[in-house]
Write a protein that binds this DNA or RNA. Structure first.
Length: 502
RNA sequence: GGGCUGCUAGCUCAAUGGGCAGAGCAGCGGACUUUUAAUCCGCGGGUUCAGGGUUCGAGUCCCUGGCGGCCCA
């Protein structure tokens, strides 16, 4: 719903000089009958193809071959009768264009100098040569402006401020090779994940993002409204309950890669919308999911770096190879506390430990939740190498099967790397009666005002009552996977992260 | 939520203790037929985030707000 129609204003008044000048050049072209934004340019080759074909061309050589190329002007070096420009095309390949008086003529050379600014898109047709300095170039016979840039590019040799990079990613992409590389790395990782899953007979599905009830995880949802149904809807916090319906329906190996939305904090490792991989495997359990997850991550590492060792932006390396460490929650917590703690340790003892380590205790927490909080406080920041932390208290895992051997625990692991949680997996709870008990308990929490608790999803329970096979399920944050693979902050791995209005 | 900190030309940043708001790149004018962030000569360019206050005088000090960043809970 538009609250007000934008009022057209004459923006040409009162502009900074550089924008005014560029607008005037556009006007001048139109007045002279030249199109500043023509429909295209008949290019015959890409810059990358030329670079590849003529990689070995010796210095100061003319090939006799005429080509047409296009690109954005990123450097200009104009002299009296011979002008140089560096063009760059979408994949980042750069190539020099040369415009000489004797080839293009006085008029077109003058117009080049008069009209072309840094940032403009141009098309150039001419002979492939190398310059006297050995630079592979197209020596123009003719040229056209293909899109006039009305705003000046920022300085190419200084990094944009962090805020400008995020708010104007398009500019960041123009001036910073690392920004372009990150987009490609992310695409490579996504393709690798899909390839790895397809190779293991998993089927990709898309389940609802707009949901009538919110569930599948513990998180605060975004609320929106359907006019047609005249009802509030939730943006999903997880696809879990729908993917399990798929497994009930016989899609034995199923996955989804898409966005979840959580109405929570925004910081260097949390974004309100984030991409997630979730997958389920009938007759799998949390052990098969651990193997699968490790292989998915290792395949992705190999896809971007050729090995299990990935290079981070800060120059360090992270080795994701091998079997990965596997510990139990209470095991590492006991180690950190220096005293034996189990799922049976009573609340009073745990509170003592919390006080000793200056951890504020929420009175709503049970002993399981408190143990997890202690773990997050004392252990997680030190988990740099990939580590599976297994066997969580069942109290905090309402959708997880009880541990097959140890009462009070659930068959769940969290995968930690670089001090953050990368993924989680369960041996899924498939007994519809127990499932109902747990969800009713959640719904009662929700009714008492816990806005992270799930609502009672009768349709999900009905599905479970038709019989879901034993299954393992796993979820992994895509943005965080990129962080682990590249060492970048979450705002760099997400192309257009949410920012406050300017 | 708390603490610290930043916001100045298109971009990146300076500006002594409160005393004429500057540089590099970019831009404009000129020179240059082999440049590589070209070079040389000349010139312009500012609501110092917004609003209020103190002061003869505020980019600078104080208050409120906005948008970032870092640290802590």
């Amino acid at each position: 719903m538009t609250e007000q129609t934008p009022v057209p204003v004459d923006v040409t008044d009162d502009l900074p000089e550089q924008m005014r000048v560029r607008r005037e050049k556009r006007e001048r072209m139109l007045a002279e009958g030249t199109e500043p934004y023509p429909v295209g340019y008949p290019r015959t080759t890409s810059l990358a193809a030329l670079r590849e074909r003529f990689a070995e061309l010796p210095t100061d050589t003319a090939t006799g071959e005429t080509v047409s190329v296009t690109g954005r002007v990123i450097f200009l070096r104009n002299t009296g009768k011979l002008c140089f420009a560096t063009l760059r095309e979408g994949d980042g390949t750069e190539l020099q264009a040369m415009l000489s008086l004797d080839r293009v003529g006085a008029e077109r050379l003058d117009e080049w100098k008069r009209l072309v600014d840094l940032g403009d898109h141009v098309g150039v047709t001419g002979e492939v040569i190398t310059s006297r300095r050995g630079e592979l170039s197209v020596l123009a016979e003719s040229w056209e402006l293909t899109a006039k840039a009305l705003r000046p590019l920022p300085v190419a040799h200084k990094p944009l401020s962090e805020e400008a990079r995020v708010r104007q990613r398009y500019v960041d992409l123009i001036v910073r090779p690392q920004a372009r590389q990150t987009v490609r790395t992310r695409a490579t990782v996504l393709r690798s994940l899909r390839d790895s899953l397809h190779g293991r007979d998993f089927l990709e599905v898309e389940t609802p993002m707009l949901q009538l009830l919110h569930g599948g995880a513990a998180a605060r949802p975004f609320v929106t409204h359907s006019n047609a149904l005249d009802t509030d809807l939730y943006l999903r916090i997880a696809p879990e309950l729908f993917l399990k319906r798929c497994v009930v329906g016989g899609i034995d190996r199923v996955f989804e890669i898409n966005r979840n939305f959580r109405n929570e904090g925004i910081d260097s490792s949390h974004s309100p919308e984030f991409a997630m991989l979730e997958c389920y495997e009938a007759y799998g359990d949390y052990n098969t999911m651990a193997t699968l997850t490790r292989e998915l991550v290792q395949d992705a590492a190999r896809a971007i770096s050729g090995s299990h060792v990935v290079a981070h932006a800060d120059g360090t390396e992270l080795d994701l190879g091998g079997e990965w460490r596997s510990v139990t929650l209470y095991g590492v917590l006991s180690e950190a506390l220096g005293e034996e703690v189990t799922v049976d340790t009573d609340m009073a003892r745990l509170v003592q430990y919390a006080e000793k380590h200056n951890l504020a205790v929420d009175p709503k927490w049970g002993p399981g939740k408190l143990a997890e909080e202690l773990f997050e406080e004392l252990v997680v920041p030190r988990l740099h190498e990939p580590t599976f932390v297994r066997d969580y208290p069942i109290e905090t895992s309402p959708l997880t099967r009880a541990h097959r051997e140890r009462p009070g625990l659930a068959e769940k692991w969290d995968l930690y790397v670089m001090g953050f949680e990368l993924g989680t997996a369960y041996s899924e709870l498939v007994d519809p009666v127990v499932q109902r008990e747990r969800l009713v308990a959640q719904a009662q929490l929700a009714a008492k005002g816990d806005d992270e608790a799930m609502q009672l999803d009768e349709d999900f329970l009905r599905a479970m009552e038709y019989g879901m096979p034993p299954a393992g399920g796993m979820g992994m944050g895509i943005d965080r996977l990129l962080m682990a693979l590249t060492g970048l902050g979450i705002r760099e791995t997400i192309l257009f992260p949410l920012v406050r209005p300017e």
